[in-house]
């Protein structure tokens, strides 16, 4: 019974979130474009699926993942787990399990991120299958893993956020110079799509847990920044992935060329 109430409540809030979007879409469709939408019935069914799917997805996450993820984040960062001794400040390497958790949970939640699935499906279709959706998603997930782990390290060491971001930008600019024009826009996009429904709550809990247990950190100020890392590093990893696959294809092609006399 409680579960049904929860599903209905989440369903209503999902519908409220989607209402402005639907109003804009249908408003422009009927008032400005003034054409009947092809397959209107199918589109409406699709919207209903998206709403139902998102509702179940959120209810499920709140039941299964968020409580345990948040407990885990606070347990891994707690002084008792770190083995801290009263009066002795912990050193960054005491938090090694935090970095491992940050990297693995960042990777795993990104693989399950619905908006990344959407962009990857589109990219595979448009590239005519030469870019694989799964390969792209794994590349993005590796970027998030590195980003969140490094972000956790930054909170532990208390080093300034802008420095990391500026170095990251410099790397992205250098990679952009080397990359082919077809991958650049997609790589830039993949930074923004990684951090939504699944990743943000877990990663935010980790940042908050770290910033509130480490002496000298303020959860209000130092707890931020993990999302920024998780949006920057996928750009690098996708550009790197494209450079590597291109190189492999070229090597294969030249090897195949040699086979035929």
């Amino acid at each position: 019974m409680e579960l049904i109430v929860h599903i209905v409540r989440t369903g209503i809030s999902t519908v409220i979130d989607v209402l402005p979007i639907a109003a804009i879409l249908f408003g422009f469709q009927f008032l400005v474009i003034r054409k009947k939408l092809p397959n209107l019935k199918k589109v409406l069914f699709g919207f209903a699926y998206v709403l139902a799917g998102l509702t179940l997805f959120l209810v499920g996450l709140e039941m299964a993942l968020f409580p345990i993820g948040e407990t885990m984040a606070s347990q891994l960062t707690s002084p008792a787990f770190i083995g801290a001794v009263e009066g002795v400040p912990p050193v960054p390497m005491d938090y090694v399990w935090v970095y491992v958790f940050a990297a693995t949970i960042g990777f795993a939640t990104t693989i399950a991120e619905p908006s990344l699935i959407a962009v990857a499906l589109k990219a595979e279709k448009i590239s005519g299958g030469s870019l694989k959706a799964t390969g792209l998603r794994i590349a993005v997930a590796i970027g998030v893993a590195v980003g969140v782990a490094l972000g956790a390290w930054r909170i532990v060491t208390g080093t300034p956020l802008p420095v990391y971001i500026m170095v990251g930008y410099a790397v992205v600019i250098a990679q952009t110079m080397l990359s082919s024009r077809t991958i650049i826009p997609l790589a830039y996009d993949s930074g923004g799509v990684t951090t939504s429904t699944v990743t943000v709550p877990v990663v935010a809990a980790l940042g908050l847990g770290l910033a509130s247990t480490i002496p000298g950190r303020s959860p209000l100020i130092d707890g931020f920044g993990l999302i920024a890392f998780a949006s920057l590093f996928p750009i690098m990893s996708v550009l790197a992935y494209a450079l590597i696959t291109e190189r492999i294809k070229r090597t294969k092609r030249s090897a195949a060329g040699r086979d035929i006399p």
Partner: peptide
Amino acid sequence: GTAFVVLGLALFVRGLEMGLFPI
């Protein structure tokens, strides 16, 4: 919860291809 998440994700992807992408 996990069963809900699996079913929800499947429905979402189906709705994506039927509704959001086409519109």
